[in-house]
Amino acid sequence: MANQNATHGESHVAHHFVDSEQQLDSSKLGMWLFLVTEVLFFGGLFVAYIVYRAWNPELFYMSAKELSTTLGAINTVVLIGSSLTIALAVRAAQLNQRALLSRYLIVTILLACVFLVIKYFEYTSKFAVGILPGEFYTYEGIDHPGAPIFFSIYYMMTGLHGLHVIIGIGLMVYLVVKARAGTYTAAYYTPVEVTALYWHLVDLIWIFLFPLLYLIE
């Protein structure tokens, strides 16, 4: 470890890379491959969704009515906004605008928190009437023998998505701390770039969750 980077002009290029171009390209490909695993990870839940929806179309139409389209739509717009701000944060890093970089990151974090707060109110209003996952389901408003299955899938999909939002917030807080310390420059902003990719994926998943869970008429 001792002799790494010793004679390098660009200090952020690790010893086994030729230059920063190769390093950034590698990191981005690595992140994209990770996103592939994320897509297939959520994919399992989408498969469950499709299988059960094909079996119980009526149940899904009835259950989706319990969810608030307004709150879902607001959250969609919030996430789109956060995707825009983190893309702007990457741009700021590329243009060496350090103050702007941390400001955009903070706005993104705030938007992510708004998303979670709205999600919290949605969850608690469902819990209050006994719409809980699986065997704890006690709600009687839906007259269907398989009634719990829609909300089990709903909670797992949105719960897993929410977990990704929380992880994203953690990553961005780390980025803000580092950005304040002046770590990221136009020559080195790989962590910002790959975190942004991750965050866009969180947005992408929600883009599919919203019509599939909230907008079934």
């Binding site: 695993t37 994919g43 399992g44 996952p133 065997e135 299955i149």
Partner: peptide, 29 residues
């Protein structure tokens, strides 16, 4: 391509035995 699916499978299995989400349980649909 395949391993994430193992992850979600075992996550569902764990949720099934702890929270009873019922995704593999005929009694819950």
């Amino acid at each position: 391509l395949a391993t994430p699916n193992l992850a979600i499978t075992f996550l569902l299995l764990i949720l099934e035995s702890t929270l009873g989400v019922g995704i593999f349980d005929p009694a819950l649909g």
